[in-house]
């Protein structure tokens, strides 16, 4: 092996220095912040109310038991959001004049549900519709069943309505982002409009929209907590009711941790997926 050149040695030194500097500045920042916070006059009070060790040890396992409820609500909503979002995006892309009402409806739908706070949608749908269908009794679809006026039905419906409006815009921008030359390439082979959409445009649009879509899915995972307004007990609801009778906010901090445990792996998964995708279709990855 040839000995490293003067320049290589310099680069190596430079890199080692960068690591040392980054570590030192991080440590200093953390220590300074820690000292500032713990030395402020209100800290003992905050520590007692928000970061109480005993409360944390007692409440964390209890809250963990409700984690599945949040995941379940998310899993119930997500597929419907993706399907409805895609359907609305496709409606907005139709060019057939006979389908104009569909296009107009899709535009109005996205304007409407993106324009009102999600929490209001949850309130109005979750409290309004059950009063309308109170006398209908029970329903059963594909093995799922319950009362027609159940919050377990209308809570997720409200989230699906609100989120599919956002997601449809993500899909639409993905579809429009596929360059016109791709359509020309496909049409010149004799592929029909529908075949071009299915084999050429949508597959590329999907790859493009995965990062923004994941953003929306992360928000959804957090916003399922809004359904608790309708009386469903999940992590946030349980934490706030513990807080209500103990007067201590530590369970809410524990709930925040539980949500992080859910969402951080999701983001890492997406990062891994997009990098893999890029590496597969192009020779190299510029980081």
């Amino acid at each position: 092996m040839t000995p490293p050149t003067r320049r290589q040695l310099w680069l190596r030194r430079q890199r080692r220095r960068a690591v040392v500097v980054a570590t030192a500045s991080t440590v200093i920042t953390v220590v300074v912040l820690w000292l500032l916070i713990t030395n402020s006059s209100g800290w003992p009070r905050v520590k007692k109310v928000f970061f109480d060790g005993q409360h944390f040890r007692d409440d964390f396992p209890v809250l963990l038991g409700y984690l599945w409820q949040d995941v379940k609500l998310f899993l119930q909503c997500a597929p419907f959001i993706l399907l409805l979002g895609l359907a609305i995006a496709m409606c907005r892309n139709t060019r057939n004049p006979a389908l104009f009402p569909l296009r107009a409806f899709a535009a109005a739908y996205t304007d409407f549900f993106r324009g009102i706070p999600v929490i209001l949608t949850v309130y109005l749908v979750g409290f309004g519709i059950p009063r309308l269908v109170r006398d209908w009794g029970d329903f059963e679809i594909l093995g799922f069943g319950g009362a027609w006026n159940s919050p377990y039905l209308w809570g997720p419906v409200a989230l699906v309505l609100a989120y599919s409006a956002y997601v449809s815009e993500v899909f639409r921008s993905g579809i429009e982002g596929v360059h016109e030359s791709q359509r020309a390439g496909a049409r010149s082979l004799g592929l029909s409009h529908a075949q071009t959409m299915r084999h050429v445009v949508l597959p590329q649009a999907f790859r493009r929209v995965i990062p923004p879509l994941m953003n929306d899915m992360l928000s959804l995972q957090k916003d399922v907590a809004l359904i608790s307004l309708l009386g469903i007990v999940e992590v946030f609801k349980r934490a706030s009711s513990i807080k209500d009778y103990s007067g201590n906010f530590t369970p809410l901090v524990a709930a925040a941790l539980i949500f992080l445990v859910l969402t951080i792996p999701e983001t890492r998964l997406v990062d891994w997926y997009t990098t893999r995708q890029r590496r597969r279709t192009s020779g190299s990855v510029i980081t």
């Binding site: 030359s181 390439g185 049409r187 082979l189 592929l191 084999h199 597959p203 790859r207």
Partner: peptide
Amino acid sequence: DPDPIRRRIGMVFQSYNLFPH
């Protein structure tokens, strides 16, 4: 209907227009 005609005519573009996926 343009589709049956286009399949009889091949076209190659300046920017290739291959499907990257």
